[in-house]
Nucleic acid binder design. Structure first.
Length: 273
DNA sequence: TAGGCCATCTGGTCCT
DNA sequence: AGGACCAGATGGCCTA
């Protein structure tokens, strides 16, 4: 994998297509022994499941392939070229898929870095799903709280309590008036998972599957280091005061904590086994 | 050494 | 017709 820096591999994830194509073409000139990759060949005689075919079989195959297209005969070289072209497209497609997967990994709240093993594809997908679920839950809860507060007490009716003004919020809280309070919790609200969230605590139903997928690898070689984009800025306590934010928003007991914790990943627990 | 993960090849199917 | 997408097969690399 081109982006796989943590996993040392001698095999390039996405070899230069043109190079492969050209080298294969060069080899194909000498017959059907053109090897495209280090693992497999584009030669029909080496196609998985077709190994051991005689020359006659290969020819029959070529004829069959040709007949499936437009009944016109194609030379071996033409078929080879078509096959190489298709293979090249498929490689590119898979490469693009991997790029997208890397992009997804980048925005996932798990420890990144050279010392951290890259998430597998399945783990990335499961984690992403759980992450989305968790964020959705948080958002819904925030909406509920805001409507509750605005609906009942006039405390936050337009502005934040003065007590809150004495507190230093851990993260950037532009404005901070009630209207922007929705973003407040995103910074340090108890409803949201603690900093340790990183990869592990994002667990949701299904992330245990990640555990089952890769139970012993230990996705986080340094579990406490480098929390992701979410975890790194997490702080519920007032900076400098050592006190929790006294505002009613921050003191509302998190009713969904349990549900949130149900979204908490048990994976690292099993990882730490 | 077994198992997990991955890249690649391949043929089939669907879509434009 | 050509390309995109998909799933099965295969073999290599890595880790426990």
């Amino acid at each position: 994998m081109d982006s796989d820096t943590s996993r040392v591999s001698s095999r390039p994830s996405s070899p230069e297509v043109d190079d492969i194509f050209m080298s294969a073409l060069k080899k194909s000139v000498h017959g059907f022994s053109g090897a495209v990759s280090s693992t497999q060949s584009d030669s029909p005689s080496e196609i998985p499941g077709l190994r051991g075919l005689s020359a006659a079989d290969e020819e029959a195959l070529a004829l069959r392939m040709a007949s499936k297209k437009d009944r016109k005969l194609l030379s071996e070289n033409e078929l080879q070229a078509i096959r190489l072209k298709i293979n090249s497209r498929e490689r590119k497609r898979m490469h693009d898929l991997n790029v997208a997967m890397d992009g997804l990994r980048e925005v996932m709240p798990y420890a990144h870095g050279p010392s951290v093993r890259k998430l597998s594809k399945i783990a990335t997908l499961l984690l992403a799903r759980n992450y989305i679920l968790m964020l959705s839950n948080s958002l819904e809860e925030m909406k509920r709280l805001v409507s509750e507060i605005y609906g009942s007490s006039g405390h936050h009716g337009g502005f934040h309590p003065s007590t809150c003004g004495t507190m230093t919020h851990a993260g950037p809280v532009p404005g901070h008036p009630a209207a922007s309070h929705a973003s407040h919790p995103a910074v340090h609200h108890p409803l949201l998972p603690p900093p340790a969230v990183s990869t592990a605590s994002l667990s949701a139903p299904g992330i245990s599957a990640v555990t089952s997928v890769r139970p012993h690898h230990g996705l986080l070689k340094a579990p406490t280091a480098g929390a992701g984009p979410v975890g790194s800025s997490f702080q519920h306590w007032g900076v400098g005061t050592g006190m929790p934010c006294p505002c009613s928003m921050c003191q509302v007991p998190p009713p969904h904590v349990s549900s949130m914790s149900s979204v908490t990943m048990p994976r690292l627990a099993s990882d730490s086994k």
